[in-house]
Design a protein around this nucleic acid. Structure first.
Lengths: 352, 352
DNA sequence: GCGGGCGTCGGGAGCGCTCTCACCGGGACT
DNA sequence: AGTCCCGGTGAGAGCGCTCCCGACGCCCGC
């Protein structure tokens, strides 16, 4: 706690008095200064400076119905998903972009049903201009709630319903090219002369896991389906899956895991049973989660996605949509911002 | 983007009309319903329900001068520090506690000087009721700015000035017992019969690094100062430091690293030069950063801090301070909330 | 049976801002 | 020379809410 004597903050009125102009003029200057002659602008600026005037956002919002704030909703931050730097990087990207536009970031973390209701109410309450939503699971009710709330929204990661082209309003999302990345990884394994290539999939109620699996399948057109094991994105899950796979196919010579954590688990099992990586079994992960991918022995070859960039893009898309709204109401050139899929890159280290 | 036709949200007035009462009565019901007779309360509640009324926070703030929102300021989220789940967990703890009190979380990430000014302006602008601030570096101007802004604040981690008892206003912070945890780690190494115990310190412009070093010194009272090497909290730094130490003391038999990342780096070097862990050299880290500590080989013995709990506590302390303010203005029993230092626990795995 | 007090309720002012509109002056045009 | 127009400025209304205060019962006590 600091200063308990809350000094009364100067108001527009006070600035106007000091500058010898009307409230309206001060307001104009504060909001860009268009239509005010230079000498007056200067006088007002100085008064603002001297008084340390800061606009009262509440009063402003009351009349403009804008808040210069967007909500970032992160659903179900279980320890597992929260443990990786994914969201931190997204947030950083989002924050940078929002800052550029003088927009605040209201963070909403949810877990469990009642939280969903709370978030729904908050968004519907019109406290923010828009929302950036991360919802990982197929059965998550949150996206539906949000669409109901009528708040402009951009999703992080392709939401589940966005694959079938429903008759619904267009959903804007930013995702990385999970499928393409997976394809590249598997192709790389194939180019190494590997033929028995297994896949440790993530939880298949997430589009990212499904897409990576699809990418694998794109390349391994007629592979034995038993080469695919679904796990849970954790190292322990990766271990179990690896053991399972080794049991089924003692002769397998490559593994593509749907994330680095599972790859790390798989790596431990491989080493434990005496398989050399990459000589006997080549291994590729996904995410390029640095503290893991660089720390394994050997360091992990993996598929990198530019997570911070995803965040920036989400924010940019949302803001663009918002200003379109405020502007010509409709029909402005450019049309509705549409979804973006960012490219991935294969990072070659030692494991494949 | 969704529904472009923004439906006009119902106002207090509308609810009042529908319930056949006055605005004032609706307001009373919405804010707890004290002093309104039951049948009326019920009627109003129903009207609220039917109209889907949500209070306009801006209008409310305008008169109450409260915002039901606190800022979380995270200074300098360099990739290194942002890469570990530390902030994510803190945020989760903070979010949970704030949610309990119907309080919003405004996230402010900063990097660089101009950002500081921006944050200072924002806080001084009175847009939030309080602030939770994470500032890691000794020379960070942010804490000063914030104190200047006159916003109730709780710090995450002991700020640098809080050690000397200045005549300034009391600073409230939440920290974990870095020094005690370090002591416990080093004592554990000693109890294993190790005598040549080295310390890989973190960047010493952070109080956490300094405290951990102090804890080491508390136990190793007359150790050779050359057993201490300052590194930068990264795996690469840990590697360099380890090599340095091995050069100086080929006979060292234990290492306490100020975080898990450096411990992981040290571990790689030890293995590379053929030292067995823990047989030849025992190794302890700090943080219990799961994706690292559990993935190393052998798994890392380390000092755990309950990060989420720290977050919760910070929020609780701040909120308590805020309600004291709003309440009896001053002199309420209980006094100013004071800083809290949370205990750490030694997690024994295989490396020591 | 009557006055004071308390518990409920409504009226109204006003929080600080934006925005519309009326006003005013000067240059260009008829 | 008079009129029109237009850029610049000020006055005033009103955004949706809270909170103060005054009005109105109602019950209790004398």
């Amino acid at each position: 706690m600091s200063d308990p004597t809350t000094a009364p903050r100067p108001t527009l009125e006070a600035v106007a008095a000091r500058a010898g102009v009307s409230r309206a003029t001060v307001s104009r200057v504060v909001n860009g200064g268009d239509g005010v002659r230079e000498p007056l602008v200067e006088r007002v600026r100085q008064a603002v400076e001297e008084l340390g005037y800061v606009p009262n956002q509440a009063a402003r919002s009351l009349v403009t119905r804008r808040h210069d704030a967007v909500a970032v909703v992160i659903a179900e931050p279980e320890t597992r998903v929260f443990t990786d730097p994914f969201f931190a990087l997204q947030l950083r990207g989002i924050s940078k972009e929002l800052t550029l536009h003088d927009c605040q970031l209201v963070l909403l973390l949810t877990e469990g049903r009642d939280d969903h209701a709370r978030v729904g109410r908050y968004l519907a309450g019109g406290h923010v201009d828009g929302a950036l939503v991360f919802s990982l699971h197929l059965d998550d009710p949150l996206p539906g709630l949000i669409r109901g709330a009528g708040v402009p929204t951009v999703f992080g990661g392709r939401p589940c319903w966005a694959d079938g082209s429903r008759g619904t309003a267009p959903t804007v999302y930013v995702d990385s090219d999970n499928r393409g990345g997976a394809r590249e990884a598997v192709r790389h394994l194939a180019s190494l002369g590997r033929t028995r290539i297994a896949h440790i999939a993530g939880v298949l109620d997430q589009t990212s896991a499904v897409d990576r699996l699809d990418g694998y399948r794109d390349v391994m057109l007629d592979a034995d389906p038993r080469l695919i094991v679904e796990a849970d994105f954790t190292p322990a899950g990766g271990e179990r899956a690896m053991r399972e796979l080794l049991g089924r196919f003692p002769d397998l010579d490559a593994v593509f895991a749907a994330n680095d954590l599972m790859a790390a688990g798989a790596l431990r099992v491989l080493r434990a049973v005496g398989r050399r990586v990459p000589e006997d079994v080549a291994l590729i992960g996904f995410d390029d989660m640095l503290p893991v991918a660089e720390q394994t022995d050997p360091p992990l070859t993996t598929v990198r996605q530019d997570i911070e960039q995803m965040g920036r893009l989400m924010a940019r898309l949302l803001l663009r949509g918002l200003e379109r709204r405020g502007g010509e109401a409709a029909g402005t050139p450019g049309g509705t911002p549409s979804s973006v899929v960012l490219p991935t890159t294969l990072v070659r280290r030692a494991s494949a």
